[in-house]
Computed example of a mutant assay.
Amino acid sequence: MKILISVLLGALLFVESAHCLQCHACTVVNHAGVCQTKTCSHGESTCFKVLLTHSASRVKSYVKDCTTSCKDVKSSLAMLQIQGFSVHVNCCDTDLCNGVDGVRSNLWALAGALLLSLGPALLWFGL
């Protein structure tokens, strides 16, 4: 009976760990695409992406990670606005949702990528 219980508990822990949220994570980088994938800790159910822009130099920096609450991230960065930074915080709750926006936000780029990927097939069929 003890073996059965330990197997069931092990299976439950495996299932729980398999469903942990994954986010992109990096600290103060100049390009949002250089972040790594991170499995969030237990209790961290939100991914966030912060864009910091210094008002004088216009230099942009990104911070991405997991958090327990978007409100916590926003309140911890509030002092940066006083110090001359523009702070934009985006939070989401699905795997890798805090990644680079890129093609998803530009319909023309998406249409162009689709045409380029279909190009060889269209040429093959003589269309």
Rank of each mutant, 00 (worst) to 15 (best):
Q22K: 14
K2G: 13
L9T: 09
S61R: 10
L13V: 05
G119F: 14
G43I: 02
H88C: 01
A56Y: 00
C47L: 09
S55M: 01
R58N: 10
S55F: 01
E16Q: 13
A109S: 14
H19W: 01
V100I: 12
M79N: 09
L122H: 13
T53L: 01
T46S: 05
H42Y: 01
C97A: 09
L8V: 14
A109K: 14
K64R: 14
D72P: 05
L118T: 12
F14H: 09
H88D: 08
S17I: 01
C70F: 04
Y62E: 04
N30H: 08
G43H: 03
V89S: 04
I3P: 00
D72S: 15
M1G: 07
D95C: 12
K60A: 11
K49P: 00
H42A: 04
L77V: 05
C23L: 08
L123M: 14
M1C: 06
K74V: 08
G112A: 11
C66R: 05
F125R: 15
L114I: 14
V100T: 12
C97R: 09
S69C: 04
I5E: 12
L52N: 03
A56C: 00
K38H: 10
H24E: 10
S61G: 06
L110Q: 14
G112Y: 09
A18N: 06
T27V: 03
L52D: 03
V87T: 03
T37I: 02
Q36V: 05
W124K: 14
L96F: 12
S75A: 13
Q36C: 00
R58H: 11
E44C: 02
S105I: 09
N106A: 08
F125S: 12
C20Q: 11
N98P: 10
C26Y: 07
L118H: 11
S55L: 08
S55V: 04
A11W: 06
S76P: 00
L122K: 14
A32Y: 01
A32S: 13
G84Y: 05
E16L: 13
Q22N: 14
H24C: 01
Y62G: 10
K64G: 00
C35M: 07
L77C: 01
C40N: 05
D72V: 04
C23W: 06
G84S: 06
H88A: 10
F125I: 15
S55E: 05
D65T: 07
V50P: 08
C47G: 04
K74Y: 02
C23Q: 02
D65S: 15
D72A: 13
V50G: 04
L51A: 07
G119H: 11
Q22V: 08
L110W: 11
T67W: 02
G102N: 13
L80V: 00
Q81R: 13
L107W: 05
G43F: 02
K71E: 15
S76D: 06
S86K: 12
A121L: 15
N106I: 08
G84V: 03
V59N: 01
L13M: 09
I5M: 13
H24M: 11
S86C: 01
L96G: 10
L116K: 12
L127K: 15
L12Q: 07
H31I: 00
I5R: 00
G43S: 04
A32V: 15
L118G: 07
A109T: 14
C92H: 09
L77E: 03
D101L: 11
G33T: 11
C40S: 06
L123H: 06
A111L: 15
A109I: 14
V103I: 10
D72F: 06
M79D: 13
V50N: 06
H31D: 13
C97V: 12
G119P: 00
S41V: 06
K2I: 08
